[in-house]
Design a protein around this nucleic acid. Structure first.
Length: 723
DNA sequence: GACCTGCTGCGGTTTG
């Protein structure tokens, strides 16, 4: 074939021939050359099904075969964020490795303990593991880590775009640093990804000590055709059984998606239930077989796998009404079109979703965007008049077409994850001194933006007698306290992210899924769940179980959630859309009418003399033109000065009383550097799993580093006043 | 004003 092919080991070449491949893909050939050249780190970015896994593994497996290690130890380590992904990848790798007689060891919570203990006794080949299971190895078998990984040539991290600066991403980085420390040498890191907004920042994530040395291979997947339509809908009376836009959008989906495989991203789990229920009803009324199914994280594994299987097999037409569950890497094959109801929270996720469609050569990728706006009345709010949902959908489509997406946001302290890693290090080593922990987690690990003073404060906080996560032993050794022992002893310790408490919903002895305990339910109430209608029969509070039987009517449950963070650039583009006169060709007539209306209303506000206007006697409106973080920071500052404010995309709406100074004067004072206590309105600061063990001071530091931008506050105010 | 992800070790019994 090619020089790249000649570099591969015999059994690998034989496997490639058996696949009937005529040639290696471009990214595969490039990866083979780069991985043969030196020991450097590498990022491979290509779309789903673009051959990334093979690009990384074919040359690495070749190296293992050409130069076998002596003694026990895994040759390669793969970290994947999903159990389903690990099982998928293990199947593919087993096929390649069968010829080479290299063991492939999938390892996650659903794998039998017997096969795990076998692998620990005789570690060889490729280990595929979740971040949580790797954490468990460090905690439960900390002393065996060097033996298990001393031969590891590389660690492959799949879907790194889903990790980056998240809690879980910081955990993975910490584990990598601890791994290298345990084996006493660097281990080459290879990141696989679909969507990356900024390769430099991804390199920074992969190897913080030498980001510039990280090789990058990017597939050019330009050229494939993209078809977009944005349809507008106006909602009327809220009291209707099925609201008009739900009815109209469902009719449109039913007409255009029936007969093919599609994904409908409905935005929220509640919305998934509403549209799935409506589309099921339409199928029943037309006496047609069912082909629309809901898919979200609260539905049972059995039901989700049923939907995934139908999509993957492609034997019968299937449309999944889903949340971001179907956005990540699990293999569901190609879909005809991707529908998006309401604007998403990030361009990155829109891009990732669209990547599911038009993958087969010659097929276009199709995006059907639906925007719902409320009908205006004489007393309608000014922000309803600006049609911000529709405007955001337009802004995001424009940014998508330009190829932009959100970069990661480094700089957060991640104190909750730090508490977790401190406990993990102490537990895995049976005790540790503060300077050793500092060396492990800070000099080599991901917490270098945390100062040593803050580190000591965290140790003191979790060592307080009423917290008792750690305590001081002889010669300054830190040991687990009573609460720390209890926490790390339970398997729930290994995940760094928080999970809500839930009821299990059971019908006819089978689990349908779960709903949050925040739902107020009583026997006799009606429920829509898993796309069908139910009657609540029994509630078992202690067992957290709700028993339901089929019913004729129902209402969807509440699932709750955190507000999303919208990037500055998206809001900036929204204002450009409001101030422009261009009418995008992909919008239907209703959508264009709504956009014209929004532009007319925006022009009437007269922001031309500055970003703040008085809209009524005691009401004001600020256009920050900035994303969630900066707009929320200003909102907190105004609240601390006694104003009542509401935040929207790039806008703050507020009221003030005569006794207060005018909001313009307040903005002027902040612009001049007036000292503001952002927390005087006492906002909730606990959002992550280990936050409850920290002090208020530490929580404030953490929030300021991750969710606010205190530093920019004077400039934000100056820009608003400058018009 | 949202979405998603994950989980060990032991003791007992049976089988080759």
């Amino acid at each position: 074939m090619t020089p790249a092919f000649d570099k591969l080991a015999r059994p690998v070449q034989k496997w490639i021939r058996a696949q009937g491949w005529r040639e290696l893909r471009d990214i595969q050939a490039r990866a083979i050359h780069i991985l043969a050249e030196d020991n450097g780190d590498l990022i491979i970015a290509a779309s789903t099904a673009g051959g990334k896994t093979e690009a990384a593994f074919l040359p690495l497996i070749s190296q293992v075969l050409d130069d076998p290690a002596t003694g026990a130890g895994f040759d390669l380590l793969y970290i994947g964020p999903l159990k389903a992904l690990i099982s998928d990848q293990a199947r593919r790798l087993e096929d390649i490795c069968r010829e080479a007689e290299l063991p492939v060891v999938p390892w996650h919570g659903d794998i039998a303990a017997s096969s795990k203990s076998r692998a620990v006794k005789n570690p060889r080949g490729i280990l595929l593991i979740t971040p949580e299971s790797l954490e468990a190895l460090f905690v439960r078998r900390g002393l065996e880590i060097p033996r298990l990984f001393k031969n590891a040539r590389a660690v492959i991290i799949d879907e790194i775009h889903s990790l980056l600066d998240t809690e879980r991403g910081i955990q993975v980085r910490s584990l990598l640093a601890r791994l290298e420390l345990a084996v006493g040498r660097p281990i080459r890191r290879i990141g696989l990804s679909a969507t990356l907004g900024d390769m430099g920042l991804a390199g920074e994530y992969l190897r913080p000590d030498a980001p510039d040395d990280v090789h990058v291979i990017e597939a050019d997947n330009g050229g494939s055709e993209l078809r977009i339509q944005l349809r507008g809908y106006v909602s009327g009376d809220k009291d209707e059984d099925v609201p008009a836009p739900v009815r109209a959008i469902s009719d449109h989906l039913f007409t255009h998606l029936r007969g093919s495989d599609n994904l409908v991203f409905a935005g929220t789990r509640q919305s998934v239930e509403i549209y799935a229920d409506r589309l099921r009803t339409l199928c029943e009324e037309a006496h047609l077989p069912q082909e629309f199914y809901p898919h979200h994280a609260n539905l049972s594994r059995e039901h989700r796998e049923f939907v995934e299987h139908r999509l993957k097999e492609g034997a019968v037409p299937t449309t999944a009404i889903c949340t971001s569950t179907l956005e990540l890497g699990i293999d569901i094959g190609d879909v005809t079109c991707v529908a998006q109801i309401g604007a998403p929270f990030s361009v990155a996720s829109l891009r990732q979703r669209l990547g599911r469609s038009g993958r087969r050569e010659g097929n276009p990728a199709i995006l059907r965007q639906y925007a719902i706006e409320t009908e205006l009345r004489a007393d309608s709010n000014i922000l309803d008049r600006l049609r911000l949902g529709l405007v955001r959908a337009v802004a995001m489509i424009e940014l998508l077409l330009e190829g932009w997406c959100e970069p990661p946001r480094p700089g957060a302290l991640h104190l909750s994850t730090l508490v977790h890693q401190i406990l993990s290090v102490i537990s895995g080593r049976g005790g540790a001194k503060a300077p050793d922990i500092y060396k492990t987690l800070f000099q080599h690990g991901p917490f270098r933006s945390v100062s040593s003073a803050v580190f000591l404060e965290v140790l003191r906080a979790i060592g307080r007698p009423d917290i008792a996560l750690i305590e001081q032993g002889e010669e300054g050794i830190l040991l687990l306290g009573e609460a720390g022992e209890k926490l790390t002893d339970h398997y729930s310790f290994f995940a760094v992210f928080k999970t809500p408490e839930e009821y299990r919903i059971v019908a006819n002895g089978k689990t349908l899924g779960s709903i949050s305990i925040d739902n107020i339910l009583a026997p006799g109430m009606l429920l829509i769940f898993s796309g069908r209608r139910w009657h609540v029969q029994e509630i078992h509070d202690r067992e957290r179980v709700i028993v339901v039987v089929p019913a004729k009517a129902g209402v969807p449950p509440r699932f709750g959630g955190d507000p999303g963070i919208i990037h500055d650039r998206v809001v900036e583009r929204m204002f450009e859309v409001l101030e422009s006169r261009e009418r995008p060709v992909y919008m239907d007539r209703t959508a264009l009418n709504l956009l014209d209306e929004a532009r007319g209303n925006y022009a009437q506000i007269h922001f031309d003399t500055g970003g703040i206007v008085q809209t009524a006697d005691s009401e004001f409106l600020i256009a920050t033109r900035l994303g969630t973080i900066k707009t929320e920071t200003l909102a907190l500052a105004l609240r601390s000065q006694g104003y009542r404010v509401h935040v929207h995309d790039g806008f703050i709406e507020g009221t003030f009383s005569e006794a207060q100074s005018s909001p313009i004067d307040t903005l002027k004072a902040i612009a001049r550097g007036k000292n503001i206590d952002l927390f005087s309105s006492d906002p909730n600061l606990i959002s992550e799993k280990f936050h409850p063990y920290l002090t208020d001071d530490l929580l404030r530091l953490d929030v300021v580093s991750s969710k606010l931008d205190q530093q920019s506050l004077p400039r934000i105010c100056a820009n608003i006043l400058g018009g």
